[in-house]
Simulated scan of single mutants.
Amino acid sequence: MSNSLRDQLLKQGLVSKEQAKQAEKQAKLKEHQGQKTQSKKQKANKAIVDKESISYLAAKAREEEIARAKELNRQKEIEREKKAWWSQVRDIIDCQHVNDPDAEGTYYFLEDKWVRKIEVTLKQRQLLARAELAITAIDEKYYLVPAAVAEKVQARVPKIVVCFHQAANGRIAEQDEAYIAYPIPDDLIW
């Protein structure tokens, strides 16, 4: 019972087969052209959106690239400063160290958890005990430097000064009261 309008009109004799075919062709052509124009509109809108999104993405990529470049420049500047500080510290220690190649005694000190030693004279041992000398380490070599130099070096690169008894005077107050009567002698060799 579901005859199409075309079939009903043909049965009634109101239209001929050719007219029906022609009407059907025009309907299909109209539908096809409507789809084409709609597709063109969609493509045009998509092209506009694509151009906008491409320009947005390009601008965003440029911003990200600029941010990465700034961060990289900042890191390079920090590395350059570190190298400059290290070279300054090396120069200071090379010029100011007072290591004696003819030292006859050994001075033991703690570096991190390890006991290390350096060759010193008796006078240098006394200066170390009075905090007038300090021990610095560069490339696993130990250097004796005056206290003023040690403070300069410690301000720039703190980990390079491995033994500096600058807090020896204030340390007595921190000790237990039972040991205050028994001070450690300056000339103690262990």
Rank of each mutant, 00 (worst) to 15 (best):
I78N: 04
A129M: 05
W114C: 11
N99V: 08
D112W: 06
K70F: 04
A67Q: 10
W114D: 15
L133V: 00
I138C: 03
A131L: 02
G105E: 15
E64V: 05
R125W: 10
D139I: 02
Q42S: 10
V120N: 05
R116A: 04
A147N: 12
W86R: 14
Q75L: 14
D94T: 13
E119P: 02
R90G: 00
T136F: 00
I48F: 08
A61W: 00
E81Q: 10
D91H: 08
K43P: 00
E132R: 14
Q75F: 05
A137Y: 00
K141C: 11
K83I: 07
E64T: 06
Q88D: 09
K60Y: 08
Y143L: 05
A134R: 01
E140Q: 14
E104A: 14
K82R: 14
K43F: 06
L128K: 03
G105L: 11
K43D: 07
A84Y: 04
P101E: 14
A150H: 03
E65G: 02
I118E: 03
F109P: 01
K51F: 05
K113P: 00
R62S: 13
A148C: 06
V120W: 03
N73D: 13
R156S: 13
K117A: 10
Y107V: 02
A129P: 01
V115S: 11
L133Q: 01
W114H: 14
Q124K: 05
E132M: 09
F109G: 05
A59E: 13
A137F: 01
K113Q: 11
A59S: 14
W86G: 05
